Amino acid sequence: MLKQRVITAVILAPIVVGGLFLLPPMGFAVFTGALLAIAGWEWANLSGFEGGLQRWAFALVLVVLMAVFQTLPVVPLLGALAVFWVLVAAMVAAYPAGTGVWHPRPVRLILGILALVGAWLALNHLRAGDLALGHTGNNLLLILYTFLVVWGADIGAYFAGRAFGRRKLAPAVSPGKTWAGVWGGLAVVAALALAVAWWLDLASIAVIQFVLASVLTALASVLGDLFESMLKRHRGIKDSSQLLPGHGGILDRIDSLLVAIPVLASCFTLLGWLTPVQ
């Protein structure tokens, strides 16, 4: 298993890094859209569709919707996404109660459309929006920072959970997650945010805003992980697919980012640090 994980990582890392950080905005949009369409193929399975034709049809629907929604104003879409993720948080908190509402396969497909298309729109807003933050306007650094927040939250949760984990966060959804892990992850992200704010030479009030936005993004990443775990548990599967040997599926790698990216994009937009391209 470890050998498989290493081989997969070695092969995929250059592709992902190149697609995310070396392509121009249009190439970036196509590359990320393709990744999320494949994730949609996996989501169709989470929704109860096992047939290959049905799953690829859903992936195609996602591509069409990406093309349609990318022509719309991004700010209202981010607002709608915020409402959606609040509702998802309520679903996760209530599980296993309330499954009758989202158990129907079409409803789960709609959830996938909102999560995947929404993340793609927010990610491209981070890539192409006008960024004014401290002494940098480099959108690629902003995307890298989003990833660092998610990774920092995950690493902090792992070590704090192992050392201090007692009280379970959501035992019905993910028995391994603890409140100590959440607090440990938030502490790591807060420290990261303070270091980056110092590097950006932000004013005092901006430092507070930057740290709060980063911590909120870290919390959102936890919700993304729990959301996919809930769907997999309901579906009775361990991984979203076996596309990435040793790693599961694409959704298993990006579930936290599906929420973290829109939340960070929304926070920075509300604070006036990221504005849509006119």
Rank of each mutant, 00 (worst) to 15 (best):
Ala122Cys: 10
Ile113Thr: 15
Pro96Thr: 13
His103Cys: 00
Leu123Thr: 11
Arg127Lys: 10
Arg108Lys: 15
Gly100Gln: 12
Asn139Arg: 01
Val107Pro: 07
Thr136His: 05
Ala119Cys: 15
Leu111His: 08
Ala93Ile: 12
Pro104Leu: 02
Arg105Glu: 14
Leu109Asp: 08
Leu131Arg: 11
Trp102Lys: 02
Leu131His: 13
Ile113His: 02
Gly98Asp: 13
Leu121Gln: 12
Leu133Lys: 08
Gly112Glu: 13
Gly98Glu: 13
Leu116Ala: 09
Tyr95His: 14
Asp130Ile: 15
Thr99Ser: 08
Thr136Cys: 03
Gly134Ile: 05
Asn138Phe: 03
Asp130His: 15
Ala119Gly: 01
Leu123Ala: 12
Pro96Lys: 09
Ala132Gly: 14
Leu121Trp: 08
Val107Leu: 09
Asn138Arg: 03
Ala115Pro: 04
Thr99Trp: 13
Asn124Arg: 09
Ala132Arg: 15
Leu116Glu: 13
His103Pro: 00
Leu116Asn: 10
His135Asn: 14
Gly137Leu: 00
Leu131Met: 11
Gly118Thr: 08
Arg127Ile: 01
Gly112Trp: 09
Val107Phe: 13
Asn138Gln: 11
Leu111Gln: 06
His135Tyr: 02
Arg105Trp: 03
Ala119Gln: 10
Ile110Trp: 12
Tyr95Gln: 05
Leu131Val: 15
Gly98Tyr: 13
Gly134Trp: 04
Tyr95Asn: 07
Gly134Glu: 08
Leu109Tyr: 06
Gly134Lys: 03
Asn138Thr: 05
Ala122Thr: 11
Leu116Ile: 14
